[in-house]
Amino acid sequence: MSDFKVNHRDGEGFSVLELKGYLDAHTAPDLETTFQKLLTDKKYNIIVNCKDLTYISSAGLGVFMAYIEDVRKNRGDIKLTNMSPKVYNVFDLLGFPVLYEIYRDEHEAANKFRQQSKKG
């Protein structure tokens, strides 16, 4: 079975999900559970760090799609960081960069959240 792990930690004003391994149809429900928990806890500023994400399939992307609306409705966002070219390619192929903000690292994404909270 493919291996996938989500590690969740909280920063100042945002939550970070570190994804590791294969995110596919088999493991997508794990990520879904994590998102559900974040939403239940009203944590809507979410940074997804893809540093150790080796593979993502459309089912994996589907999880992001399934939650982005709810998150944004609550004035939050899902921002993605540290994507490997391979993972980015899948995002790009399916046209996702128009929908999600993608940053080089967590620091950039966190800054963006800070700016947005000042404005908002």
């Binding site: 149809a25 399939s57 459309s58 089912a59 992307l61 589907g62 999880v63 992001f64 399934a66 996702f96």
Partner: peptide, 8 residues
Amino acid sequence: FSLLGQIG
């Protein structure tokens, strides 16, 4: 999930 992900 796959519909959401593949077709957006």
